[in-house]
Design a protein around this nucleic acid. Structure first.
Lengths: 213, 213, 213, 213
DNA sequence: TTTTAATCGAGACGGTACGTCGAGTCTTGAC
DNA sequence: GTCAAGACTCGACGTACCGTCTCGATTAAAA
């Protein structure tokens, strides 16, 4: 009832006329969306069900959110970001391993992770959701933070490519629910090898099949 | 009208009683699904529309496919596999580069790729679709073929992990439609670095085939 | 647009929450059912067609009526009752003749009569309709009114039996569309003979075949 | 399995080429229709269900009967006629009473009676069924037989009107399932009074309320 | 003995109505 | 001006039956 109260988006300074927006209704909707996602899944989630579960008029939901994806986005991103936040130690490999473990738990087990996957899926077929996610994607953002923290000595490729190398394999495995998957340690090592500069060290520029002199 | 005729699922030896399944209806449905996906997108695609476009009774669609995802799966996987098929040359890097270029075109531009992304998204919320995709995922399968072709000298990590490293970044970028993305060459190099043996040699910098001094 | 407004069933004193029922939708449905019955007959009448003709959502019809029979019942009984209403003169036979003529026209020609026959037929196979008709059957009710008006001097059998004697033959003829049928005068005479007390007058108790002394 | 074998309609003398009609299929369909009518009622009875219950191809049913009403008509009329057949004694009143009792049982309890009511109802909305019933209506026919047997001394009105007077009240009561109904004796007496000559005896022409001099 | 032709079972075909559900919108009175 | 309630139009859902249409397999008279 209070978790959602710290990131209220509106609340302009110029107090408007009429009845003010009900904070009770807002957080009830977000909680209802949260709960229903866990209980019945994204596909069966409906605006109608959200409103009813929240004890709120249907119009009230539509007044503030256009689609179920928007509701879920607002209900989830904050939690997702919190679950993926990193506390950097000095050790690069240890940080990457810890992060990848957190990502795996997030994608495989967490409620917020389930919502995240649903949102990514929804973004494929709804441009509005795609815009939301492009503006603020908790997974991409957290990966960016890790990559930035590693520094240019460790990450010698463009940041955005490094992000893809860091979480791309995780996301693929999560979306194709593969059976046997690599551990966080192996993934971290592969990532660290991949982001080693292609140009810094001349021996690194060799093409496969070429022989060093 | 004949593209779908080469992967007909039935045709048992023991001739069954009753009117035989209409090949005309089958391929009309698959083509209709194909066309409609391109025209209106997956979200707005309906079984009703598929049936009407195909000039087919609604029940005829439901008789053979349970959901629009199943129709699309049958309509698409063959094309997808064809688009992603590789003609191995001897050069490892060249093969990887060529493959990644094909994957990028597939995911970003191709109709089959659009269908593929829709199916991956649908699999997140429908277990039946997930089963289909797990059994036969054209992208994963083609990546496996590439990894196997590269051989254990080049790929020194488990095959499944290599698959994730090969196409994971591509899939992530496709699903989060990032703006500036790395070229196929850079991606290929990063991949080749990543799959270099993690444990063989403590120095880790050895190239496959190279001998330590 | 106004004929159905004089028998609105709801209108509770305690104003209820939510959007009030649309009188426009209600009467549009009733008129549509009326018209379609005449145009295409009861068997081909569908809820879908009623809704479309009325320019109303299908759900709106189902919200207030469970079956096409219920719609037709509400659309018709008022008219039927009006067509069968009697203006009693003093003359018993004249009243009966006039009533039977009205009944014949009602059953043979009137739109309301066609609906009535359809409802009686429907009641044979749908208990809900049977309940409606048992509660308020315009033909039976009007016949009861006639029988009551005749008084116990003329009608010397139980009222309900008299009703059956009065309209039973009419209904049978209407349902088995016989060719040559008796005129209202003959039917009235037969009715009046039939309802003469079996016990009042000793000469009336004679068994057929017996001879009066 | 043999009840229906005594009224086979076809079997022309000119033997036709090709496989002859299967008597097994024919009686299986009629029995299936019979049974299903009792079990699920006329409204829910379908051609599909009849065929399946009979273990017969759907086309085989449609080849010989156009509608479920036709099947039921053939399956039922023979039984109905048998249930309503009269064995005339000499006593007019006794014969009428016995007949009316049989009619009441037929309409209220008998399976054949249920089918008969369903057919009468169906005839209201299907001209083909109406034609069948007009050609051979077991109730009307049996009533005609009774009226004819009574002779012109007892029945002094046109035969067809007498038929209506005899079974009209019964049919009305059966179709409007009235609660308290008259006994067969009272009905018989009322009928016998009603069919007494309208014009033969001048005292019969008296208006109700008038007093004979 | 071999046609030949109509029937049989089975079941897929293109249609259409069913009754339900969710989508968004609109209209109340109350706050 | 927002709130809850709930009725509104719209259209897809998945199911059922319609009546028709192939199929291969019988079956008996005709050739």
């Amino acid at each position: 009832m209070s978790r959602y109260s710290d990131c209220v988006p509106e609340r302009t300074t110029t107090t408007k006329a009429g009845r003010p927006r009900s904070e009770r209704a807002r957080s009830a909707v977000l909680h209802a969306a949260d709960d229903l996602l866990v209980e019945i899944g994204y596909a069966d989630l409906t605006m109608k069900a959200i409103a009813e579960r929240a004890g709120v008029g249907r119009q009230t939901v539509y007044r503030w959110w256009a689609t179920k994806a928007e509701v879920l986005f607002e209900a989830t991103t904050y939690d997702a970001a919190k679950e993926l936040a990193s506390e950097p130690s000095g050790d690069a490999r240890a940080d990457v391993v810890a992060y990848l473990e957190r990502v795996e738990v997030f994608l495989a087990c967490s409620d917020a992770g389930a919502a995240y996957k649903a949102l990514v899926a929804a973004a494929q077929q709804d441009a509005a959701v795609a815009d939301l996610m492009r503006a603020s994607d908790p997974l991409i953002d957290s990966a960016h933070a890790i990559v930035d923290a590693l520094g240019q000595d460790t990450v010698q490729v463009p940041a955005r490519q490094a992000v893809s190398l860091l979480v791309g394999p995780e996301v693929l495995d999560a979306f194709t629910d593969v059976g046997e998957r690599a551990g966080a340690g192996e993934r971290a090592d592969a990532f660290l090898r991949a982001v080693r500069s292609p140009a810094q060290d001349p021996t690194e520029t060799l093409r496969s099949g070429e022989q060093p002199p």
